[in-house]
Design a protein around this nucleic acid. Structure first.
Lengths: 378, 378
DNA sequence: TAGTGGTATGATAGCGTTATCAGGATACCG
DNA sequence: CGGTATCCTGATAACGCTATCATACCACTA
């Protein structure tokens, strides 16, 4: 008989040397020599020769910028096929001073919130024959700028950014240099952006809680200087509460370092220690709300009976949690799609100097169980 | 008083024309003319002139390939600074016949399973001064090939692929043309790959269930032809069951179309209709398990009392579900990192013709509550 | 003095593609 | 027949950069 998994076992795999990242030239770029052997690739000249036409004609057959006789076109394509010709987009890009790619900077790839956004962007880019370069800033201004600089060096056709700070001068500069820029998940006074109406998001969360009778409402958010999204959500919440005769005292506003479930756990511990506890909490990120609810229950607090919780984002799993989460849903895929569409309008030049395109998408409340209202599951 | 959100309301945002994707030349690429006005960018020649050196010297100051006197270097950098010079990586790439980018094809961006993998790859790429291009194949061979073809046209330095089918001839061809290729999430007989030992994953799931006394075990997986990962997991499961005196009858093996929670819901409905039900189910994707468990509970079946469930992947939320999921955890971030490291060894040429690097990472069982064993939360 | 090796710079010639300018061919019109 | 328009093709010259070869200088050795 046989041991269960009859394959060569190699627990660690081949051992890889750890390379020292410091052993490279100090200069900005790494331009190492050509690889030793070089599989010769056919150029458009080879194709042209074989098809018995000039390289220019061959070029036109591929790019379709000028008319080419059907018969010629067939010969060129046949020759290309035989030679395994693949056009060199670097060379084409050098001529056009632009490469068929768009760059995107997201805050963090590890956040499931960004998947649908990237997905939306990618769909549009693919359709438009552009590649998508994705970098993350990890909420560091330095990394954001580094990514943008790289994009520019690659002469990307355009750039989508979720900026980490409200200071967007670097984006203005980039735009001034002729690179179309669209911001998402934030506003941009003189520029194109697509974002969600966070004030409205806060408002609908607050209204819902007021309607359910809550008079003391707490707030959990990312505690980051200059995060206007957080400010807007709080503003919306406060407005709704005020009109409903409810309050959110400053000591009930808890701020987290990041946006992980672990931050929610920490927030729940803080909540539990409050002298006078709010009966409801608006937790402005589902990822955080997940940990928050989890920890409350560990501590013997019931959700929604003892504490009502409203989340934000409506990430995909919120409906399957231990307590399905009532939350403010954002049109994430649409956000990515719209941002990309605006970018391509700029790129294609129909709209180069046009007025700023500023899109404010509307959030909507998804009522589940964490507030104790009618438990519809969307 | 004021209406709650004192900002210009624009529910739909600016109206965008829907562009007809068909109104472009039939040829493969879109090479449109230059944008009307062109912000002139300084070239290395301008920098050189200003610094009083030849362009070659300036080039060397930036790339660090040849020694340049400290004083000269300073002058060049100063000139670059003054002119706002940004090196053109397209031009450099044209010379090197390679661009500082790596391409990555994942199955689907919308799956939270891929986030940590992309994250791992991105970290390595960023460190190595390379950009990461991400495409998704959406499980379509055609899209996979299209992405790879685009990558090749951009002369990417290397490619990471999670192939949709076990037929990897297109990858062999790509490699033969001099593009380093590393496969992940699948094996590749003659090539580099990093994947998880799925047979072992099935085995540890099966062993766990046997140990808990289950004798009838079902299986839920993606029902896709040629999915060797699924086959391996089933094989491992069956081995473990056999040794423990348990069975997984064919009619207890349920296959889904995709890997969404909705597929899990459908699978739960099938399960409920079985004449004789298994007491445990091995659901080979947490996303599916989430829906599966959810629906079982909706139907009044208790987890784990009536049905034990083991998942696969250990996506981030599995611990926060209505029933925290016992699951087979995969080292996703490490998988991405390792794959990228192998790729860069090839790219940097230290290892160009070396033997295949084949890494099999080991999964591990994370015991939570969905099987009724000791409810440790990791 | 001639020879050797290392260092710093430059001139030339591409890398593969397409914009631009210039035709040659064909067709249709009066 | 000449003229004008349309369609197709070609020669030349970039795009911005760097590999390659060549040179000039200095310091040291024999």
């Amino acid at each position: 008989m046989w041991d269960g998994c009859g394959r060569p076992r190699n627990r660690l795999g081949a051992v890889l040397e750890v390379r020292n990242p410091a052993d490279r030239p100090e200069a900005d770029a790494d331009s190492r020599p050509l690889p030793p052997e070089d599989a010769v690739t056919a150029t458009i000249r080879d194709v042209a020769r074989r098809a018995g036409v000039s390289p220019i004609t061959a070029s036109r057959a591929f790019s379709g910028t000028h008319p080419v006789a059907e018969e010629t076109r067939r010969r060129v394509f046949a020759a290309a096929e035989e030679l395994g010709y693949v056009p060199d987009l670097l060379a084409r890009g050098l001529v056009h001073r632009r490469s068929p790619m768009i760059g995107m900077v997201v805050l963090e790839l590890a956040n499931p919130f960004v998947n649908p956004i990237i997905d939306g962007v990618q769909a549009v880019a693919f359709e438009r024959n552009h590649l998508l370069i994705v970098n993350q800033s990890l909420r560091s201004r330095e990394m954001e700028e580094a990514s943008l600089s790289r994009f520019r060096q690659m002469r990307v056709a355009g750039v989508l950014v979720a900026p980490i700070s409200p200071d967007l001068r670097h984006l203005e500069e980039l735009r001034a240099q002729g690179v179309p820029v669209v911001v998402f998940s934030r506003r941009w006074a003189g520029g194109d952006y697509v974002t969600v109406d966070d004030c409205e998001g806060g408002r609908i969360a607050g209204e819902h809680l007021v309607r359910l009778g809550h008079r003391r409402v707490g707030f959990v958010a990312l505690g980051e200087a200059g995060n206007t999204a957080v400010e807007a959500r709080l503003e919306g919440l406060l407005n709704a509460l005020q009109r409903g005769g409810a309050v959110c005292r400053p000591e009930w506003r808890l701020f987290t370092r990041q946006q992980t479930p672990e931050d929610g756990i920490a927030a729940a511990d803080l909540y539990a220690q409050l002298a006078e506890r709010p009966t409801a909490m608006f937790v402005t990120a589902d990822r955080v709300a997940i940990g928050f609810v989890h920890r409350l229950r560990e501590r013997g607090l019931r959700v929604p009976e003892d504490v009502a919780v409203v989340g934000y984002d409506d990430i995909h799993y919120s409906q399957f949690l231990e307590v399905p989460l009532t939350t403010v849903a954002l049109p994430k895929h649409e956000l990515g799609r719209r941002a990309a569409e605006i970018l391509f309008r700029r790129i294609e030049g129909n709209d180069a100097g046009g007025p700023p395109q500023q899109v404010l998408l509307q959030p909507r409340l998804v009522v589940r169980r964490s507030c104790g209202a009618g438990a519809e599951t969307r």
